[in-house]
């Protein structure tokens, strides 16, 4: 019996179908990725704030008014504010604010910031080791048994969790006893704006803040791990991959060493 020939399928229109699909995707998608600054809105606290004075050295206070003018409030000591002429230089100032009092990590830093610890208008650093963290946790746990107020005990429990993370990371990367340099717990960047400040200026300030923090983290990451923070962050953002767990730990450590504490407030006066 003669073999029947299989009829050939005309594939000429296949290209047309593929083109249709291609055009559909071209039309419905965008090339540019959404870029943004992600921030947390502070939760309204039920516990009345303890009236504690915050030294001006611990606050990097940026003030933008209705006319989009910038001022660094009390930067050179109380009552001594500095106007900002060029916003591009703001990140430089924040970078200095972060690192001036830190123990220098390399020679470049040592040249750039002489006599660390003695600069009066910048926040102080303190040392803490994994062991110190464990002592703190013990203290907190003791106090937790005596607190009856549920709101307060919740905040203490949160503190304990934070210290646990710290002690685990310090132990991993620095061992038990090495004192890790940490910035003053109250040190923060404060962005104060008025109602008519433009969104553009606001994002520019955010950009400068982000740039400074990124640079400080890069500096420390390069010294510690031999690669930049940005690289670590990109790897850490790949989810569900065990290969990058190490990078996620590194990222967490850098976020603890150089905390991004930004407070945004609107003043109506």
């Amino acid at each position: 019996m003669a073999r029947r020939e299989i009829p050939e399928i005309n594939a000429g229109s296949m290209a047309d179908i593929a083109f249709l699909l291609l055009l559909f995707f071209l039309v419905t998608t965008t090339m540019e990725k959404d870029q943004a600054y992600i921030r947390d809105i502070p939760e309204e606290s039920k516990v009345p704030p303890e009236n504690q004075e915050i030294q001006t050295r611990n606050v990097f206070h940026i003030y933008a008014n209705n006319k989009d003018q910038l001022l660094l409030v009390d930067r050179n000591g109380p009552g001594n504010s500095v106007p900002v002429k060029n916003i591009e230089n703001l990140s430089e100032d924040i970078y200095k604010w972060y690192l001036s009092n830190r123990k220098p990590i390399n020679k470049k830093m040592a040249d750039m910031f002489p006599n660390p610890g003695n600069n009066e208008s910048f926040p102080q650093y303190y040392g803490m080791s994994a062991k110190d963290c464990e002592i703190e946790i013990e203290k907190f746990e003791k106090s937790l048994t005596q607190i009856k107020d549920p709101v307060k005990s919740k905040t203490v429990a949160k503190d304990i969790r934070e210290y646990e993370v710290k002690s685990r990371l310090f132990k991993k990367f620095y061992g038990d006893d090495e004192k890790v340099q940490l910035i003053n717990v109250k040190a923060h960047i404060r962005i104060e704006i008025q109602p008519k400040t433009s969104y553009e200026l606001f994002t520019q300030i955010q950009s400068e803040v982000e740039e400074a923090i990124c640079k400080v983290r890069n500096e420390i990451a390069l010294n510690q791990f031999g690669e930049t923070y940005e690289k670590i962050r990109t790897k850490a953002s790949i989810e569900n991959d065990k290969k990058y767990d190490e990078d996620r730990k590194k990222q967490k450590l850098l976020q603890i060493l150089v905390p991004q504490r930004v407070i945004e407030i609107l003043t109506k006066k």
Binding site: I38, R39, I41, E43, E44, E88, T203
Partner: peptide, 19 residues
């Protein structure tokens, strides 16, 4: 947003080349 406890906010911008 704070009233409904949606506490994560993002300010969108266009990315500009590095300095």
């Amino acid at each position: 947003l704070e009233d409904v406890k949606a506490l994560k906010i993002a300010y969108a911008v266009n990315q500009k080349g590095r300095k």
